[in-house]
Design a protein around this nucleic acid. Sequence first.
DNA 1: CGCAAACAGATGACAGGACATACGTGTCGT
DNA 2: ACGACACGTATGTCCTGTCATCTGTTTGCG
Lengths: 161, 161
Amino acid sequence: MKVVEELRYLVLAIQREGNRLLAAELRPLGITPSQAEVLRVLRDHGPLTLNALGGLLVCETGNSPSRLVDRLVAQGLVKRGIDKVDRRYLALSLTAEGRALHRRIVTAENRLHRTMSTLVAGQPLDETIATLRAVADAFPAGAALARRRDPEYDHALAQER
Amino acid sequence: MKVVEELRYLVLAIQREGNRLLAAELRPLGITPSQAEVLRVLRDHGPLTLNALGGLLVCETGNSPSRLVDRLVAQGLVKRGIDKVDRRYLALSLTAEGRALHRRIVTAENRLHRTMSTLVAGQPLDETIATLRAVADAFPAGAALARRRDPEYDHALAQER
DNA sequence: CGCAAACAGATGACAGGACATACGTGTCGT
DNA sequence: ACGACACGTATGTCCTGTCATCTGTTTGCG
C-alpha cells in the first residue's frame, strides 16, 4: 500500500472513531459533534451570518449550514436574528441555554482529549501536527481552522459590513 | 487550543477534503468513495461474508454494510451469493464489471495520491504515519486496516468456517 | 426431538454532508 | 425607476454512517 494511501485510510479511521467517541460523550447532552462545533464557533466568534459561520466550520465546508443551525434553533440553543439593514443576512448567536450547554460540552470534549492524549503519548506530536497542517491548509476546511486561530479575522469580518 | 484538539480538527478537515476530492474523481465512474473501498476489499480479499467485509472496512465500522452492498449489487458490480451450508451467510464477490471498474478506480485514486504527495512533500511522513497508527490501532477501524495489511488474516478467516 | 439462545443479515429512523437549484433581497447600471 | 444581476439563505435529493430493532437461520441443551 502506498504511503499516502495509508495516510488517507488512517485519517479516515481516526476521524470515524474519534467522532463515535465524541458522539457518545455528547449524546447525554442531546447534541451531535457537528452541533457542538457550531456552538463553539458561535461562542468564540460572536454573532455571525450563516456564511461566516460556514467559513469557520470544519464540518460542512461547502454549504451553508442551514439545517445544522435549524436544529439548534429548534432546541433553543441558538438565536436566529435577521439583520435590520440587509434582510438577507442572519445574525446567529447563542442563547443563554446555548452558553450553558457549551460549558458542559467542554467537559465532554475534555474527556475525549484525555483519551487521545494517552494514545499519542511518546509520539512526535508536533511534527505530526505540522505535517497535517501542511495538508489541511491547502483546503477550505483547513483555512477555516486557520481563521479560527487568527484573532484578526473577527475584526476583518466586522469591518466587511 | 489544546494540541490534541487541533489534531482532532485537522484530522476532520483532511478527511472531509480528501473525501470531496476523491468523490469528484470517482463521480464520472458512478460510484462513491465508500463504494470504492468495498470493491477494493472484495478484490483483495476474495469472497467475503457481510460481517467479514465489515471487519475490513474503515468506513462503516460498527454495522453490517448491508445497504452499501445493496447499491453495488444493484449496479451489477458485486455478486451476492448465499452460502449453501449455512444460509445465514452471504458470499460477496466482484462481478466481471466490478473487476473492470476497479481498475479505473485505481487510476482515479492515484490522481488523488499524487495531489496528496505534493502536499506532504518535505514533511516527516513516516513519523506522522507512526503517530496516526498509534491512535488508529486502538480502535476497530484501525484494526480493520491492520488486518488488510496482514496476509495471514485471509487464511484465518477461511479456517474459521 | 423441540425450543431457547446465538448469530448473520436486513430494515427503520435520524442526523450529516454534498450537490444542485429555488427563493427572496439588495445593488447597480442605464 | 426598473430590470438584470449578485448575493445570502433555503430546500430537494441522494448517499452515508450510526443506533436500535426485526427477521430468519442454525446450534445446542434439556
